[in-house]
């Protein structure tokens, strides 16, 4: 069976800016696939190429085995697209928008009404269906947008930053809904710059940075590639440097400890990389006790996707966000997104 989405060596430049340099990814049928990266990394451009809104400069794109470049119309039938910015006609009611959507996807006339009722119920929009979408809250708008994307039962649902700007309750509702969709067999491709979102939702992840896929796999595969678990240790709430240095030497001698860094910004706490899923906490605490040092706090965690990103790019996702925010040309981006 053909993969739900296949992208190979995608390239797209806007003038001097290479928005996508080399993106290849494969989304298998029935999984949630996360495209993770800082703002401006090329996620949206990749999705726009996939959704046939933008023509790539080169590369291959297939949706359920149909080339989106050679047969865009056919590919569109397999896709549901929920853009980052909810674009509703505020004068239309939810039901009217879905009726329009149904006609645009040429659903057989006799199936339209029951299908709309079904999808409205599925997204809990029943009581809002006949109110103008201009009166909806942000969460409701997103739900209507989701309903519109799902109305024609696409093989692949594509969501660009589905929870940006949503409150926590709506965000969790969207997450649960996407999981529910997956369990029914729909393939879901999301982009996000929220680590925890991708970590919580995605079966597989591709991390994209400056137009290039820098890592791909299941979240735990990626974390395992980075190596050991992370341990944060505080000897005291604010430890003197000497004591931290002493503990560092002491801990580096332990066989399960791979690396020790003193974090001066955090009251000379110690950041350790230890053998994955080891009994590090007890070993470390015993070692400190024997040396007569107290323990204020200690925590062990598996590496996060941020560690994966850090490992591949030498900067954290947050740093990349901040750097990107300074260098973005929002006006030019808006122009690219306008057709």
């Amino acid at each position: 069976m053909a993969p739900a989405v296949l992208i190979e060596q995608l390239q797209k430049r806007y003038g001097a800016i290479e928005a996508v340099k080399d993106v290849s990814l494969q989304v298998e049928s029935g999984e949630i696939f996360g495209l993770l990266g800082p703002n401006g990394a090329g996620k949206t451009t990749t999705l726009r190429c996939l959704c046939t809104l933008t023509e790539p400069d080169s590369g291959r794109i297939e949706v359920s085995g149909v080339s989106a470049i050679e047969h865009p119309r056919l590919a569109r039938q397999h896709l549901g697209y929920v853009a980052q910015e909810v674009a509703l006609d505020k004068v239309l009611t939810g039901r009217e928008l879905l009726e329009l959507q149904a006609a645009l996807y040429h659903l057989p006339r006799q199936t339209i009404k029951p299908r709309i009722v079904e999808i409205l119920t599925l997204l809990g929009l029943d009581e809002w269906a006949d109110k103008k979408s201009g009166t909806y809250s942000g969460g409701l708008k997103k739900r209507l947008d989701l309903a519109a994307g799902l109305l024609h039962q696409p093989d692949v649902l594509i969501l660009d930053e589905p929870t940006v700007g949503l409150d926590i309750e709506s965000r969790v509702a969207v997450w649960n809904f996407l999981r529910e969709l997956r369990s029914q067999g729909t393939t879901v491709l999301i982009t996000s710059h929220y680590l925890e979102e991708v970590d919580a939702l995605a079966d597989r992840v591709a991390i994209i940075d400056r137009g290039i896929v820098i890592a791909a796999g299941t979240p735990s595969e990626l974390k395992d590639q980075v190596g050991g678990d992370r341990v944060t240790l505080r000897i005291r709430e604010f430890s003197p440097v000497e004591e931290a240095e002493q503990a560092k030497v002491l801990l580096e001698a332990l066989p399960l400890v791979q690396e020790v860094i003193i974090n001066r910004a955090q009251g000379n706490s110690l950041n350790l990389v230890v053998a994955p899923q080891s009994e590090a906490l007890i070993t470390i605490q015993n070692a400190l006790q024997q040396a007569g040092l107290p323990t204020f706090g200690i925590a062990q965690a598996r590496p996060s996707l941020d560690d994966v990103y850090l490992n591949a790019t030498g900067r954290t996702l947050l740093d990349a966000e901040i750097a990107a925010a300074g260098s973005r040309d929002l006006k030019a981006e808006k122009k690219q997104n306008m057709r």
């Binding site: 959704c51 046939t52 809104l53 119309r73 056919l74 569109r76 039938q77 896709l79 697209y81 853009a83 910015e85 674009a87 509703l88 006609d89 959507q101 645009l104 996807y105 040429h106 519109a148 997104n337 306008m338 057709r339």
Partner: peptide, 16 residues
């Protein structure tokens, strides 16, 4: 419609 992105909704649909 172009400016608000509503046109995109029409353009991703498999219009005849």
């Amino acid at each position: 419609d172009r400016e608000f992105g509503f046109l995109n909704r029409l353009l991703v649909a498999p219009l005849a």
